[in-house]
Write a protein that binds this DNA or RNA. Structure first.
Ligand SMILES: [Mn+2]
Ligand SMILES: [Mn+2]
Ligand SMILES: [Zn+2]
Ligand SMILES: [Zn+2]
Lengths: 126, 126
DNA sequence: AACATTATTGCAACATAGTCGCAATATTAA
DNA sequence: TTAATATTGCGACTATGTTGCAATAATGTT
C-alpha cells in the first residue's frame, strides 16, 4: 500500500498544521475550503495515524480528536503519547500539553495507550 | 426532585458494588438478573452521578464507564476524580487506580474534570 | 503522451452508543 | 386509600464513526 498525494490529504493535513491544536472531524470539516466527504476525512485521518504523522485522542466528550505528532516519530525513536491533553469547555479548543507524564502502574500492569484528558477553561476563557 | 427507591436503582447499584470496577452500560445489562430497559439504566446511572454516588469515565474506546465513588463524597468534602483509570485490552476490565495524581497546568488554565485512562494489559492478562 | 495499476474518493447504508418524549407504572407521603 | 409525582418502558431519534462498492484520480511504465 503505497500512499498517494491527493488534494484531500494535503488540505486536511494543512488544516491540522495551521490550527496547531487537536481537531475533531467536524472542526476539520468547518475549517476546510472544499467539500470533502465525511468518510474520506475519517479515512485520511486514520491513515495519518497509521503512518505516525498524527495521533488520536478520545475526548471526555467521547469524540475523536486528531493532532499532528511533534515529540515522537521523527525526533524520538518511540512513538509515545503519554502527555496530557486539555479541552476547553468554553471555546472547545483541545491542545496537547507537551510535557511527558510518567504514570506509575501497579505490578503486572502493562501500559499500551495513554489517553489523558483534562477539561476546564483555557487561558483565554478562564 | 426527591429520589425514590426502586428495584432498578437497587439492582444497578448492587451490580456496580459487587463488581468493584467501572462498568459500561452493556456490562451492567449482562450482569443484571432482571430485564431493565436500556434507557432506564442510563438514566439511573446519570442520576447516581448527579448525586455523587458514582462517577463517569470516558474510556479510550469512547464508551462511558461508571464506578462507585470511594475517596470522594462521603469522606472528603470535595468530589474529585483526579485519579488514573486502567482499561485492559484483553479482559475489558476498567478499574480506578486509587492514587490521586496532581497534574500541573500552564498559567491561566483551570481544571474542572479529569479523564485519565491508560489502556494495556492488567495483572491477570499480561 | 497514453496506458495500466490500484490507492483513494463519494455515496449510501450500516453500526453503535446514548438521549428524549410520552404514556403507563410504581413509590412516597398525606 | 388516595393524590402527587418520580421513575420506567417503549419507540423514535441524534450523533459519531465505519464499511461496501463503483467511480475517480494518482503513480509508474511504456
Ligand atoms: Mn497529543
Ligand atoms: Mn475512578
Ligand atoms: Zn477556551
Ligand atoms: Zn485483563
Amino acid at each position: 500500500m503505497k500512499r498517494r498525494n491527493t488534494h484531500s490529504t494535503a488540505e486536511i493535513f494543512e488544516v491540522l498544521k495551521s490550527s496547531g491544536n487537536a481537531l475533531s472531524h467536524d472542526m476539520i470539516q468547518e475549517n476546510i475550503g472544499s467539500d470533502i466527504d465525511r468518510a474520506t476525512i475519517y479515512r485520511v485521518l486514520n491513515r495519518f495515524c497509521e503512518d505516525g504523522k498524527v495521533h488520536k485522542i478520545i475526548g471526555d466528550d467521547g469524540k475523536q480528536y486528531f493532532a499532528i505528532c511533534h515529540n515522537c516519530g521523527e525526533k524520538k525513536k518511540v512513538h509515545s503519547h503519554n502527555h496530557i491533553h486539555f479541552r476547553c469547555l468554553q471555546c472547545g479548543k483541545v491542545e496537547c500539553l507537551e510535557r511527558d507524564l510518567a504514570v506509575p502502574l501497579p505490578e503486572g500492569y502493562v501500559a499500551k495507550v495513554h489517553n489523558l484528558v483534562i477539561s476546564g477553561f483555557c487561558n483565554n476563557c478562564s
